[in-house]
Simulated scan of single mutants.
Amino acid sequence: MPKVTRIRPAGPGHQVVTITGQGSGPCHMTSPCPDCPWRVDAVGVFPAQAFRHSAGTAYDMAQHTFACHSAGAENPRICAGFLLRGADHNLSVRLKYIQGQIGHVHDGGLELHNSYRAMAVANGVSPDDPVLADCRD
């Protein structure tokens, strides 16, 4: 199981959980949750600040991953939407794939944002926000 390394408030009723790849056991969700922020039909569920906090997970060679909000801090998992659309340049995720720790992940036929930047902008982060400058598409 991934290890929670940081929890930050991101608006009323919202928090951002940062996880690293440490630990054992299941490490990821296999499909996007009903209100997964990567889903196009879930725009507006989470405040823009949550996307500012999590932008670093989409930076080249990032070592922190985008956690599933439904799994929570008590049962941390890597978000399926992130694995499908935002993790190509994430070092932790790449290593987990190489080590065989990430199995099948599917979108369930749902429309997902094409990149972290697209998701963040759709949820109120300005395209010119410096936090998005290093996001890889």
Rank of each mutant, 00 (worst) to 15 (best):
N123V: 01
A120C: 05
H104Q: 14
V121S: 13
I102K: 09
D129K: 06
A73C: 06
D129V: 02
C33K: 11
G21N: 06
R8V: 11
S126D: 15
R117A: 09
A48E: 14
P37A: 07
T65S: 14
A118G: 06
N90C: 11
H28S: 12
V40T: 15
L112W: 09
I98P: 07
D107K: 14
P76E: 09
P47N: 12
I19K: 01
S24F: 00
M61Y: 07
A80N: 14
V17L: 05
Q101M: 11
M119Y: 06
P32T: 03
D129L: 05
T65N: 10
A73K: 11
R39V: 04
H28P: 01
V93D: 11
V43E: 15
R136T: 03
V121F: 12
S126E: 15
G86I: 01
Q63T: 14
D137S: 14
H104G: 01
R136Q: 15
T57S: 14
G11I: 06
G86T: 05
A67L: 08
R6T: 07
A118W: 06
V131H: 00
C68Y: 07
L132Q: 01
A58V: 04
G23C: 03
G56M: 03
K3E: 07
G13C: 04
I7T: 10
H28T: 02
S31N: 08
M29P: 00
Q15A: 09
A80S: 11
H104V: 03
A122V: 02
A120E: 05
G81Q: 07
D128R: 10
K3H: 02
A48L: 08
P130N: 07
A122L: 06
L110M: 13
G44A: 11
M61K: 15
G100F: 00
V121A: 13
Q101G: 10
T18A: 11
F51R: 05
P32V: 01
E74W: 02
H89D: 14
I102H: 09
